[in-house]
Structures are given as structure tokens and as C-alpha cells.
């Protein structure tokens, strides 16, 4: 008994997190904390949209054309019922934004998750197996990079509509967007995971696992994967912002969600038509929400990258 150290007093994961350097770095960065609060608020708002929103903007029984195009409450002619005003059909802007946020975050989140799933799997296999498999996967990735997300979305949209004849946009929009985002974003994950896998594969804890005779998939899953997820987390955050923007762009261009089920992008597209007739709030509020969300998510990603970089600690 020479190097006996005091046993850990059964610390929980929360306690360990609160003592960690990451949390300390978070506490010392007001910008990261502000960004986190905004992102969290938007997430909660989006998830609880049906409970929080004062009106259901998609219930025709509660939308009246007589309320159409009302300016925000503090402006001349504003209606105290509609804090951020109403759109051309008399829907409450604040409620519409909450519902739009829900759709945007869901599409962006699912798209990024799909991209991460594809990218991590392929990157792990490429890095661990190496050789021809690696070369094949990475060349496919190179080709993938030459197609912009919009082109992929148009392509998939076209294919879906020609295969499933008469499918409505309401049903097809979300899967098409998620798959498009997934297919356009996976390359970055694959590259990052592949290079970290190369490094981890050479470490002796992997050799030790091979010595025990574990099969390659088990080693990849149990040993390598947990150790290559750090950088993925950073890309995941930054990509979420990008994915929301991509969805908005696609919806704005009309490939994405229809006006009956609007995302932030659809709201901006609708509002855009009224910008020059003076009804600026229809485009400004969804636009500002989108900008603040993406900015906050990116700031959070930047902070995470610095916090996880041991050289900057």
C-alpha cells in the first residue's frame, strides 16, 4: 500500500460537473452564459409553444381577418392583444414565432442529428479500418462537399414528389428538409471523427482491448467512440445554427415548409412581401429571432471549442 489515495466519496455526475474546468470556464465567461440563457429560453419557448403561446395561429376558428396587419402594441394603431402585432391573415406574430421556432429547431435538430449519425459512423469506420475503405468513404465525402444543401434539397424534393405522386407538401416537407440537411452536413463529422479515430486507434488502450480479443466493432463502439466525441460536440452546436439557417433559406425559397405550417424561414418569406408596404414587423421579428438564435448558438459553440481546448486553458 504505497500510493493509496483517498477514495472518492461516491460523487454524482452533477457534482463532478460542477467541479470541472468546463463549468468554471463557463462561469467565467459572461458571453457564454448570456448565450446559453437565450438558447435555453428559445428551446423552452419552442417546446412549450402550445402552452405558452397566447393564441393558436393555426386554428382558423380563432383567427380573424379583421385583426390582419396590426402593428406591434407600442405603435400607433397597435392592439393590446397582439404584443408583436399580427400578420396579413390576422395571426398573432408572437405565437407564430413560437410555433415557427418549434418547427425550425425540430427540423434543424433532426437534420444535424442525422448528419452526425451518418458522419460519425462513416468517420469511425474510415479511421479504424483505414486502407481502401477509408479512401472510398473520404472520396465520397469530397464529392458530397461539391453539392450545396439547396441543390440536394431540390433534388430530393423532386425525387420524392415523382415517386410518391400527389404527396402533399405538408407531409413531405419535414422529412425532405431533414434528409437534405443530414446529407449536406455529414462530411464535417466524418472528417473530424476520422482524424481523431486515427489518433485514438494508435493509443495503447485500443491495443489492450485488441489483446483481449474484442472484435473491431465492439472496440470502436466502446473504446474509440467516447474518446472522439469531444470535437463532434463543438461541430454539433455550430451546425445547429447553420442547419436552422439552411432550413430557413430552403423555406424562404419555397422548397421547405408551406405557409400552413410555417417555420421561421416561411414566416420571413411571407413577411418579405409586406416589407415595402410598411408592415415591417411581419418580417423583422421572425428575422431577429432567427439571427439571435443562430448568433447565440454559435457563441456557445465558440466558447465550447475554447473550453475543450486544453491549450487555451
Amino acid at each position: 500500500m504505497t500510493e493509496t489515495s483517498k477514495p472518492a466519496a461516491g460523487k454524482g455526475a452533477v457534482a463532478r460537473f460542477l467541479e470541472s474546468d468546463i463549468y468554471a470556464s463557463f462561469r467565467s465567461s459572461p458571453l457564454a452564459m448570456a448565450a446559453a440563457v437565450i438558447v435555453l429560453a428559445m428551446f423552452v419557448g419552442a417546446v412549450l409553444a402550445t402552452l405558452i403561446a397566447p393564441y393558436d395561429p393555426f386554428d382558423p376558428a380563432k383567427v380573424f381577418l379583421s385583426d390582419a396587419s396590426l402593428p406591434p402594441r407600442w405603435q400607433d394603431g397597435g392592439d393590446p392583444r397582439f404584443f408583436l402585432g399580427t400578420d396579413d391573415q390576422g395571426r398573432d406574430m408572437f405565437s407564430a414565432i413560437l410555433y415557427g421556432l418549434q418547427v425550425s429547431l425540430m427540423v434543424g435538430g433532426l437534420g444535424v442529428a442525422l448528419a452526425a449519425l451518418i458522419g460519425i459512423t462513416l468517420g469511425l469506420v474510415a479511421g479504424y479500418v483505414g486502407g481502401r475503405t477509408d479512401a472510398l468513404i473520404m472520396r465520397v465525402a469530397d464529392v458530397q462537399l461539391t453539392f450545396p444543401a439547396i441543390l440536394i434539397a431540390l433534388l430530393i424534393d423532386g425525387v420524392v414528389h415523382s415517386v410518391f405522386k400527389g404527396i402533399s407538401r405538408e407531409t413531405s416537407a419535414i422529412p425532405v428538409l431533414v434528409v437534405s440537411i443530414g446529407l449536406s452536413f455529414w462530411v464535417q463529422y466524418a472528417r473530424t471523427v476520422r482524424s481523431s479515430t486515427f489518433v485514438e486507434k494508435g493509443k495503447d488502450y485500443v491495443s489492450a482491448a485488441r489483446l483481449v480479443g474484442l472484435p473491431a466493432p465492439v472496440i470502436m463502439w466502446r473504446h474509440v467512440l467516447p474518446n472522439v466525441l469531444g470535437p463532434v460536440l463543438i461541430i454539433l452546436t455550430i451546425n445547429l445554427g447553420l442547419a436552422v439557417i439552411t432550413e430557413a433559406t430552403l423555406s424562404f425559397l419555397g422548397v421547405g415548409l408551406p405557409p400552413t405550417e410555417p417555420s421561421l424561414g416561411t414566416l420571413i418569406a411571407i413577411g418579405n412581401q409586406y416589407l415595402f408596404s410598411g408592415e415591417w414587423w411581419i418580417v423583422a421579428f421572425p428575422g431577429a429571432t432567427l439571427a439571435i438564435l443562430v448568433l447565440s448558438v454559435n457563441l456557445l459553440g465558440d466558447w465550447l471549442r475554447d473550453a475543450l481546448n486544453p491549450k487555451l486553458r
Binding site: 500500500m1 504505497t2 489515495s5 477514495p7 472518492a8 461516491g10
Partner: peptide, 8 residues
């Protein structure tokens, strides 16, 4: 030469 609790 370690303590059994070190496993945690």
C-alpha cells in the same frame, strides 16, 4: 498497492 475504492 491501490485502494479498492480507487476503482470508482
Amino acid at each position: 498497492g491501490l485502494h479498492p475504492d480507487d476503482g470508482d
